[in-house]
Amino acid sequence: MATVAIIDYGVGNLRSVEKAFAAIGHEAIVTGSSAELQRAQRLVLPGVGAFAACMTTLRDHGLIDLVRDRAAEGVPLLGVCVGMQMLFEESDEFGTSPGLGLLKGRVRRFNDDLVVPQVGWNSIHQRCSHPLFAGVADNAFCYFVHSYFCEPVNTAAVIGETEYGVNYASVVAEANIWGVQFHPEKSQQVGLRMLGNFAVSDML
């Protein structure tokens, strides 16, 4: 079975992600070790809190090039929450902060007339079929907590959409680079199913 490595750079509730994989029978390790991350067959990039702080911490752990290199090798990479946002070129959070630039596009804040952050369960409209959605009903609910959302340049990469004031990209996929704005590890059976799909799907 494919080894999933959850990138540990000191942020986020990694234990829950690890246990979610375990609950569906997939071995996942939480690690910040370059050697282990080099060996892993799939990578999960988590992230919570502020975008710039996450990027800075990832840099401080010396992992930015590693993530970019492994993505370029074609290793399946799943960004979760702020981890999804980090896949893009830049974010408007606290001025402008650069991201990993694996996907073209930027990250913007929700309109001020909304309750922000968006906290709770919202539905995901599947814009196309995709291995990540195998066995998941259209408009299934997932758990979100975020103030910013991704605006991909390549609209074909938007495979799932969610409405919160605007219709925004809640799930993206471009070749081996996937991202989910919600927390699959906190989205009950629907989220676990998607993590399982990531762990087994043959993307290349």
Binding site: R15, S16, K19, Y143, E185, L192
Partner: peptide, 11 residues
Amino acid sequence: VRRVADEVFIP
């Protein structure tokens, strides 16, 4: 907290 987090996948 650890025990709950291991088995319950809602926030």
